[in-house]
Design a protein around this nucleic acid. Structure first.
Length: 490
RNA sequence: GGCGACGUAGCCAAGUGGUAAGGCAGAGGACUGCAAAUCCUUUAUUCCCCGGUUCGAAUCCGGGCGUCGCCUCCA
């Protein structure tokens, strides 16, 4: 049974979507005025993994992630660069996909833009005005917070609490300092659209309410985002949506914890952020994703190079086992049955057990840290099995296939490694250049042949020299009982 | 000031009443011509501190210390 921690109730709850077998998910996407940083990447990876697991559980998942392409920061940045705001956001949306693809994030079913949904937003605001939840004031439109009874239920605060913060914006036009903008009157020459209240643009919170309803209907099962969006963003979304439609907006609210640097929140205002693309210059994307999933999604995650490095090392252990499995399965006819082997292990039982443990971990509010531990347990079993198995035992090979299928299942959910159609790991070289890698393969055959001759003659200086020099080039040679293996040091 | 989270080995981290998972790093051994990979063994008598509840607590309660977050754009 899948349990999900719901910010709204502060508890883990049994997950039951509105409709059997179908899940509607909405995740707040980035404001596109810059490349994404690691803090932006965490919710992407976390909710992508949530989505993958729900699919694994057999749900049909409809997934929507917006881009905020109309916003003060975009307007200011565009002005600085001398481009149009929507040109700027278009560029960063393209760049966003490069980073997201590297991290193996599945595309959403819809990636709506604010700029393409203005008329729906205007209609929604009109509805709120008609219902008495919003009012126009000199070209702006505000939401009447005190009119909405449940205000504060997500973030757990009262009106007094909010005022006690005393950092509410001073604005003469508002009837109440807590009211927030649904529509902002455009400044001279600024990006704007026509509306019943004159030229202007939408406030930040309204876009998510409108687009969530537009693309997912009234039954939104999961709404996700960073913990810092709980208040005011998500609180305001609830107010707008429930005031307008008179029914529960979202069933499960999920929020990921922050990435920190030296234990402080990574944020643009503190200037302690690291762009995903800069991190990827030093580390493999698989390692970044692995690292982001190594801690439970609601806990803070502290970042520095040494930590990421240690995860990259750990990644190799998973990868080695995967490659060893592929190597031993080379040319194996998959039609052979999965039965007992000669090693005395009851492998099918082991596979069932690991598969169950993995699902139990993920069922418990997506405990990826535990799920990864199960994967490592499995790696150990694979290595032991590989060591003991008889090379000619076809049944044992069938067993390897069982291990491999579990690897593929774990990976499908966690999304760490990229694979080709046959389930083999996609190597960096393959991705970069297929033809070159073919040439390298043939050159390596020659080099290995020559080195083997030297080894036969016990010319260790030559043999080791070749190995050392290849290592300098980033190629690892291993002399194994099954022959010489080589791979790129990634 | 209000609200909330967290504190488990050198590092990362799971575990919310039954006697401390997993990974990285380190040590010893096996295998190897030497390595690499892998396997075996090993690394917290103890979970920030002090009290309490309990047959039993890292886990529950009270107090303290420390760190961080939200209350303002922020994933």
């Amino acid at each position: 049974m899948l349990k999900v921690y719901n910010t709204l109730t502060g508890k883990k709850e049994e997950f039951k979507p509105h409709r059997d077998g179908q899940v509607n998910m909405y995740v707040c996407g980035p404001t596109v005025y810059n490349y994404i940083h690691l803090g932006n990447a965490r919710p992407l990876v976390v909710f992508d993994t949530v989505r993958r697991y729900l699919i694994h559980k057999g749900y049909k998942v409809k997934y929507v992630q917006n881009f905020t392409d109309v916003d003060d920061k975009i307007i200011n940045r565009a002005k600085e660069e001398g481009v149009l705001p929507l040109e700027l956001s278009k560029k960063y949306i393209e760049e966003y996909f490069k980073d997201a693809d590297a991290l193996n994030i599945m595309r959403a079913d819809y990636h709506p833009l604010v700029s393409e949904n203005i008329s729906d937003i205007i209609h929604f605001i009109q509805l709120l005005i008609e219902k008495g939840y919003a009012y126009e004031a000199e070209g702006d439109v505000y939401f009447k917070v005190r009119k909405f009874e449940g205000y504060g239920k997500l973030s757990g605060r009262s009106f007094d609490d909010m005022l006690a913060g005393a950092r509410v914006e001073v604005n003469e036009k508002k009837q109440d300092p807590l009211d927030f903008a649904l529509w902002k009157k455009a400044k001279e020459g600024e990006l704007n659209w026509n509306s019943p209240w004159g030229e202007g643009r939408p406030g930040w919170h309204i876009e998510c309410s409108v687009m969530a309803h537009k693309y997912l209907g009234d039954c939104i099962d999961i709404h996700g985002g960073g913990y810092d969006l709980v208040f005011p963003h998500h609180e305001n979304e609830i107010a707008q949506s429930e005031a307008a439609l008179g029914k529960q907006f979202v069933k499960y609210w999920m929020h990921n914890g922050f990435i920190t640097v030296n234990k402080e929140k990574m944020s643009k205002s503190l200037g302690n952020f690291f762009l995903v693309r800069d991190i990827l210059k030093k580390f493999r994307p698989e390692a970044v994703r692995f690292y982001l999933l190594s801690t439970h999604y609601r806990s803070p995650l502290d970042f520095d190079d040494e930590k990421l490095e240690s995860f990259q090392n750990g990644l190799r252990r998973l990868e080695n086992a995967w490659e060893l499995l592929d190597e031993r399965l080379e040319g194996f006819d998959k039609s052979d049955s999965l039965r007992d082997d000669k090693t005395g292990n009851n492998v099918p039982e082991l596979l069932t057990e690991k598969s169950l443990s993995f699902e139990q971990a993920m069922d418990d509010d997506f405990n990826t840290a535990l799920a990864i531990a199960v994967w490592f347990d499995l790696v150990k079993e694979v290595n032991i099995f590989l060591k003991r198995m008889d090379e000619n035992d076809q049944k044992a090979k069938g067993m390897l296939l069982g291990f491999k299928e579990l690897f593929l299942m774990f990976n499908e959910v966690l999304g760490i490694f990229k694979t080709d159609d046959t389930g083999k790991l996609k190597s960096k070289a393959d991705e970069d250049n297929m033809q070159n890698s073919n040439l390298i393969n043939r050159l390596m055959e020659i080099i290995i042949d020559l080195r083997q001759k030297a080894r036969e003659e016990k010319d260790w200086d030559t043999a080791d020299g070749i190995r050392d020099r290849l290592k300098e080039l980033g190629i690892i040679l291993e002399d194994t009982p099954q022959g010489v293996r080589w791979k790129l040091n990634r």
